[in-house]
Design a binder for these strands. Structure first.
Length: 551
RNA sequence: GGACUCGUAACUCAGCUUGGAUAGAGUGCUAGCCUUCUAAGCUAGAAGUCGAGGGUUCAAAUCCCUCCGAGUCCGCCA
């Protein structure tokens, strides 16, 4: 059932307007949908208030209970029972397919993409969770999603980590988590960096490129450790990939594209470098090949963009990368366009703001980062303390699930454009607009359902209170929210929706009895809360958050 | 200097796509609610020149322009 189009068609017929905009009244008491009559007063020469009044006599379909002119607005009150019956039955029938769509497009989403000389920090966590949630949401809309990551596993950073290993840890095996060990080598190097060591780093990089056996072996050893460590962190966070790319395997391949472009006159050679002139597009020029003939990040990105398209025949290519690289992606997409690569039209940069600390920006080289593994540990331990107060069973398992929910929800509730300061007290809270609040709401519903011993017949009749209607409207709107969230690449809209739904349920819960309601009403309300629990569970799952039957 | 993003309550943020009724949450604060289905909850209250100014419009937090402030980025890092 699509209420909006029913009302819009009704109004179109009545007013002869081509476009009708409906809006939501500020207070549910004022109705469910409102039609502002200002636009009509121009042509009809009557005041909007009069027009609204005159429209009150409009003939209503059965989906609409009544209309009422309130000031310059014509307000529609939907028939709650009819909508409730239709929406709840649909949810009970379709379960996790409610809100799902069919789509043929293939979309590749690239996220995390770490530099392998460092361990993962809070910024990677935001990136990974954002990428995961986005992938899930797109999948829910029927897209064939390929989850990909690019490991930046070569270059100066890796050489610095290698030199750090040789200088301070030669022959050692990791005693800590292996990626942390490699990151430590990097930090140790950085803290003692001199002109002399810089030269050594340069030599290592060159030797690596020339396939020097010893250097390559050392490199393999370190990267292997790093991936071992990453694997564990990814697993803990529920981050997965269908495809991992490695810079070391593709970094030379972009050069060919650039040289061809030079031949065709798309790029210019100037002062020994090959450059893309972009001032026409209001962008700074971009160097594509350095004067020593070696490639840059941009060079390999040109190749990778094409490679992704070839590998998977994708229709869209999304890059989840921090806003620091906004310019880089504008340039990349523009250069792809210059090269006349079809993929240029398929690319989208999902930019997100930095996660800062009170002390300022996180800098790996200075070691003042919030480590991903530490944060998981911290949030789990906070949840454990909380659970101990409640004398719960399965404390360990639940602590992990609840702790991660707090972390994940916090990372996904802001618009991706906003940068925020990470504040442990706020970020890891379990009360208010948090993951655990949503889980708690779900557990509450489950607890009621456990106490209801009899099977609940699918019968919906008496849901007429404001609190019930509020929930029904949200359930009705869920598919639209999901779709909008997917098409605009905005997972936070889903997070906000879940909060609204949980809040609506909790208000209902405190106001009305469910198990002690009289027979038909009880059945209707049970159906309502079953449907609610299905949506909470599914939507949290899309954000990568697990639910608990009790907590 | 240029480009982009952001500026909404004491604090953290929604709302801006598609302009519309008294601008919403959460945290914190104040006052209540556990002999009733889980109080990680709910109710009520205090709290806002929507950064500033101008423009468009019947109507602007929302669209346009200017300015101010913060952040990010700007040819051989990724």
């Amino acid at each position: 059932m699509n209420i909006e189009s029913i009302i819009i068609n009704l109004l179109k017929k009545q007013t002869k307007l081509k476009e009708i905009t409906l809006e939501n009244p500020p207070d549910p008491k004022l109705g469910d949908y409102a039609f502002p009559c200002f636009q009509l007063s121009k042509t009809s020469k009557k005041s909007p208030v009069e027009i609204a009044k005159s429209l009150e006599s409009i003939k209503l379909p059965k989906e609409i209970e009544k209309v009422k002119a309130i000031g310059p607005y014509l307000n529609f009150y939907i028939n709650p029972n009819r909508l409730a019956e239709s929406v709840i039955k649909q949810i009970l029938k379709e379960k996790n397919k409610y809100g799902a769509k069919k789509n043929k497009e293939k979309i590749i989403v690239e996220y995390v993409s770490p530099n392998t000389n460092k361990s993962l920090h809070l910024g990677h966590v935001r990136n990974g969770l954002l990428g995961t949630a986005l992938s899930n949401i797109l999948q829910s809309q029927g897209y064939n999603v390929i989850k990909a990551s690019l490991n930046n596993d070569r270059g100066t950073g890796m050489s610095e980590a290698m030199l750090g290993y040789l200088m301070y840890h030669k022959g050692e095996n990791p005693k800590t988590k292996p990626d942390h060990f490699v990151a430590q080598c990097y930090v140790d190097y950085k803290q003692s960096e001199t002109e002399e060591t810089k030269a050594k780093v340069q030599k290592l990089t060159l030797d690596w490129e020339n396939n020097n056996k010893e250097v390559r072996e050392l490199w393999s050893k370190l990267t292997k450790w790093v991936y071992q460590g990453y694997k564990e962190t990814y697993k803990n966070l529920g981050i997965e990939f269908d495809k991992e790319y490695y810079e070391s395997k593709i970094y030379t391949k972009g050069k060919e594209i650039v040289h061809q472009g030079l031949k065709k006159g798309i790029f210019k050679k100037k002062d020994g470098v090959i450059i893309a002139k972009l001032e026409k597009y209001n962008l700074p020029d971009k160097i594509l090949i350095k004067s020593d003939g070696t490639s840059l990040y941009m060079t390999q990105d040109l190749y990778l963009a094409k490679l992704k398209e070839q590998d998977f025949k994708i229709d869209r290519s999304i890059y989840v990368v921090a806003s620091e690289q906004d310019l880089h992606f504008k340039q990349l997409f523009q250069i792809l366009e210059l090269l006349d690569f079809k993929v240029s039209k398929k690319c989208y940069h999902l930019s997100y703001g930095l996660v800062n600390l009170h002390s300022g920006r996180m800098k790996s080289r200075e070691g003042n980062v919030i480590d991903a593994d530490d944060i998981i540990e911290e949030v789990t331990s906070l949840a454990r303390e909380e659970l101990k107060k409640r004398e719960e069973k399965d404390i360990e398992k639940k602590a992990r699930i609840i702790g991660l929910a707090a972390l994940k929800f916090f990372m996904l509730k802001f618009d991706n454009a906003t940068s925020f300061v990470y504040d442990p007290q706020q970020s890891l809270s379990f009360e208010g607009e948090t993951g655990p609040y949503c889980q708690y709401t779900y557990a509450r519903i489950k607890s009621i359902l456990r106490k209801c011993k009899t099977k609940v017949p699918v019968k919906i009749t008496d849901l007429t209170t404001g609190e019930e209607k509020n929930i029904i409207m949200l359930l009705y709107k869920y598919p639209k929210v999901l779709e909008y969230s997917a098409e605009n690449y905005k997972p936070h809209l889903l997070s906000r929706f879940i909060l609204d739904l949980c809040q609506a349920f909790n208000e209902f819960y405190h106001q009305h009895q469910i198990l002690k309601a009289e027979k038909d009403l009880k059945v209707s309300r049970l159906n309502l809360i079953i449907a609610t629990s299905i949506i909470i569970e599914n939507s949290l799952k899309l954000l990568g958050i697990e639910t608990l039957e009790s907590m």
